[in-house]
């Protein structure tokens, strides 16, 4: 089967301004059909506004938004075949879980029995069989999220939009939910677009992601692309715990005179090298230790595998790495 070439969602020079604030600034974006797409960025970077532009809760100030090839810039939310899992879940407290899940069918005028059957089917999908008669108030946070998921999926949307879907869950539940969401997306084949400020979440779940900064997309690509080959200092800084080297230091370490990124796990410590630094911090990580070297004004993190000697704070050492590990950035 060849993949559908029409993208699920497309932004063409989309801007959304709030007064003088350019929340989204001339963004071009293509989300492939069936993708698990992440929009990553710090708060205020425009990622949530982009999601709301897709669902229709925000209107673009300029540009066009296409859902499966159709321009929806003038289509209200209720007629866009995309559904949202809200950050606060936004379950209707006066309805039972089943009524919540079946809401999308109810407003379409589907008869009661079909509604009930379909709702049960979706509750089973999110592993909440037997919870149909409860009220949202009687559920735990994780269960509420599953209800929100089932409710958003009942209309069989073209794309499912998730706004910080795991933000309100505790760590353990979050990790379990990540795997489950991923599995669910694979099974259903629906395009998932999710917004997060957590780089680990974005890297581990998405098969493609956009990093947002100040209303623009700083980089777009696969998690590996973005993590190992950041295009800019901002991406390197935000996405990884990468070292960001200023041009002077890059050259001193044998690269060109340009900003570069260097992942701590590719840096080892040696007694001799082109540049010397002072050990300023050591953090034990179990499988190894993260050692921070202070070189002039710059801090460079290195990785010392378990078993190797860990230097004392204040001692001197040189960072060494394979030349290929150095990634030169555009700026």
């Amino acid at each position: 089967m060849t993949p559908d070439p029409t993208p699920a969602v497309e932004f063409r020079a989309v801007s959304r301004h709030f007064g003088a604030v350019r929340a989204v600034d001339s963004v071009d974006l293509t989300i492939a059909e069936g993708a698990f797409f992440a929009m990553l960025g710090p708060s205020g970077s425009g990622k949530t506004t982009c999601l709301r532009l897709i669902s229709g809760f925000e209107k673009p100030s300029a540009g066009h938004i296409l859902i499966h090839g159709q321009d929806v810039s003038d289509v209200p939310p209720n007629r866009r075949n995309v559904n949202t899992v809200f950050q606060d879940y936004a379950l209707f407290p006066h309805m039972t879980v089943r009524e919540n899940v079946a809401y999308g069918l109810m407003v379409k005028g589907v008869d009661r029995r079909r509604r009930r059957d379909k709702a049960e089917e979706l509750l089973a999908l999110v592993k909440l069989q037997g919870y149909g008669d409860r009220r949202p108030g009687q559920l735990s946070g994780g269960q509420r999220q599953r209800v929100a998921l089932a409710r958003a999926l009942i209309n069989e949307p073209r794309a499912l939009l998730l706004d910080e879907p795991l933000g309100a869950l505790d760590l353990k539940l979050r990790e379990a939910m990540q795997d489950e969401l991923k599995a669910l997306q694979k099974r259903l084949g629906i395009t998932f677009v999710f917004v997060t400020h957590d780089q680990h979440e974005a890297l581990s779940m998405a098969d493609s992601l956009a990093v947002f900064n100040e209303g623009k997309i700083a980089q777009i690509g696969t998690p590996e692309d973005v993590y190992t080959r950041p295009k800019s200092r901002f991406v390197a800084d935000f996405v990884g715990s990468s070292n960001v080297l200023p041009p002077k230091l890059t050259r001193a370490l044998g690269g060109p005179a340009a900003w570069a990124s260097l992942r701590p796990e590719s840096v080892r410590l040696a007694a001799v090298g082109p540049v010397r630094g002072t050990v300023s911090a050591v953090r034990y990580l179990g499988a190894g230790s993260r050692v921070v070297l202070r070189i002039g004004e710059v801090e460079v993190a290195a990785y010392v595998p378990a078993g190797d000697p860990i230097p004392d704070i204040g001692s001197e050492a040189s960072p060494v790495f394979a030349p290929a590990a150095l990634h030169v950035m555009e700026g």
Binding site: S55, F57, N78, V82, T84, V107, R151
Partner: peptide
């Protein structure tokens, strides 16, 4: 009534 609840209704197709 949280604003997101109205958005949820519209999102799910309610006029």
């Amino acid at each position: 009534v949280p604003g997101s609840m109205l958005e949820a209704a519209a999102d799910l197709g309610a006029s």
